[in-house]
Nucleic acid binder design. Structure first.
Lengths: 274, 274
DNA sequence: TACGAAGTTCTGTATTGTGGAAATATGTTT
DNA sequence: AAACATATTTCCACAATACAGAACTTCGTA
């Protein structure tokens, strides 16, 4: 399965095309550009696009020379099913609505997927600045609140190995860019039961995150709230952390898991088990 | 583009596999079953799955003989982008939250895509029964509220041609299953500015829908509210239609379009233009 | 009206996706 | 505990098919 030999080349190309089309956004992409960008002949790209179009994976607007390709809506169903399968978003979203209502901040739910923190649900605060919380975005774990919570919940050696694998580049001047600093921060997270992303991913943005746990204390995901740093200076984070963790506990409870208090106390045990 | 010759077979197979995996849901699907179901050898299916897995399009759980394939989260990003590209959901969802809050019913926003009504956003009513409102679901237009509104907004010949193309099978005893009955209903929708799906898709479920219009009065989509028929008998639909249309107008307005009142009055003109 | 630039179709060829069979790993039964 | 059954993974050879180049068509533009 790891063997690179057993792959389907044309399918890989099709996925490359999809990524390109995704990047082109609302404007759409042209056949010629798409073909050139991924290094494929026009007829080859044409055949792939025709196949994707027939299945609704891409849509085309315009005729003839002005044709543009955009992402099709059939992807939506698959994406939504993928999220539904996690069993987390459905439970979390109503709770996040409460949370956002209570504290007036945008909230999200995310989970670990192949070493990245992936946002699987969001509730925008009414009237708030729109934070870039695109669903499905894969963020490196070291600079996001949810990412760091999920790392802290892992056995430490595994967490550090993961950091080495996906990397931990600086995104802002405040990003943590050494294993030592990151490991220290994970210690703090374990101790206080929540993580703080203090302008580590985006300047001016602060983020507080707490874990969600399932049966046996296994980590299922994390929720977070995001706001402008100037609206939430560090010394006030604790006042936000309380409702955050309380709502995270509600989700954990609904999923048959322990509260944050119990889960983090359990952690050394689960770690030793590895 | 219509020519069936210019397709990539292996890519089509991969999409078939994805559909199967989607059907298998949370439980996941096995390689052997997937290969058999779509009539492919195990090694061929294996190569396709390996490719999809490497890209996060599918995930696998379990090792060796117990390996199961499920939809991966990378689809989420693409699906979300596809919706964002429509420019409709982002505007509609906050308004739908208001609407759901005001009348306590689950609301949705949908648009036409290749002859089908596709749900691109939903807001569940708190505590309500969970209606099957999976995002991206493609429903035939004749038996859904949003579908019928969108049909009514089309030039009538085009609407009827579309109905013939995708079919209009009975889903319940109350489904409209003749062109005459459907065309009559479209007339009523044009007159009253909203559509009623009175247990035509699902017994015991009633649905009221109104159109959303953009610049120049073009139809962008439709929103709907859903509830149990016993909670909303026909004679009370009008009381729901008022806030429904009012909120639809808010969305249209935000998108630079006319109110329902104006849009439906404009309709004969746009129809004549074809 | 001619030109250029894009999409579409055609066709031969080499790549590669495919099925059969064998090997390996895993779970189950005796 | 050993033999069996079942599923995945690997190997290999061949035929199918994905691909590039060139020709054709269509459309926008000078």
């Amino acid at each position: 399965m790891t063997d690179e030999r057993y792959r389907v080349q044309s399918l890989g190309r099709a996925l490359d095309l999809l990524e390109r089309i995704a990047d082109s956004g609302q404007a759409g992409a042209r056949l010629t550009d798409l073909a050139r960008d991924i290094g494929l002949s026009k007829p080859a790209a044409y055949a792939i696009l025709a196949t994707l179009r027939a299945r609704g994976v891409v849509t085309d607007v315009g005729e003839g020379m002005t044709r543009r390709y955009r992402l099709g809506l059939s992807l939506l169903r698959l994406g939504d099913l993928a999220v539904a399968n996690t069993g987390l978003a459905d439970v979390a979203l109503p709770v996040l609505r409460d949370l956002t209502q209570e504290i007036g901040m945008t909230s999200r739910v995310a989970m670990m997927d192949d070493g990245f923190a992936v946002v699987i649900g969001r509730v925008d605060a009414p009237g708030a600045i729109r934070f870039d919380a695109a669903l499905g975005r894969r963020e490196k774990p070291h600079c996001s609140g949810v990412g760091k919570v999920l790392l802290a919940a892992m056995p430490r050696p595994a967490a550090l190995a993961l950091l080495e694998r996906v990397g931990y580049p600086a995104r802002t001047p405040k990003s943590l860019t050494s294993i030592v600093a990151l490991s220290d921060d994970l210690d703090r997270i374990v101790a206080r039961h929540y993580a703080i992303d203090d302008e580590e991913d985006h300047e001016g943005i602060i983020c507080v995150a707490a874990g969600v746990f399932g049966r046996g204390g296994q980590t299922l995901g994390a929720i977070s709230v995001t706001t402008l740093k100037q609206l939430l200076p560090l010394e006030q984070v604790a006042t936000i952390a309380e409702p955050l963790v309380r709502h995270a506990d509600l989700i954990s409870r609904a999923l048959g898991g322990p509260s944050a208090q119990e889960a983090w106390a359990l952690r050394p045990l689960t770690e030793a088990r590895l």
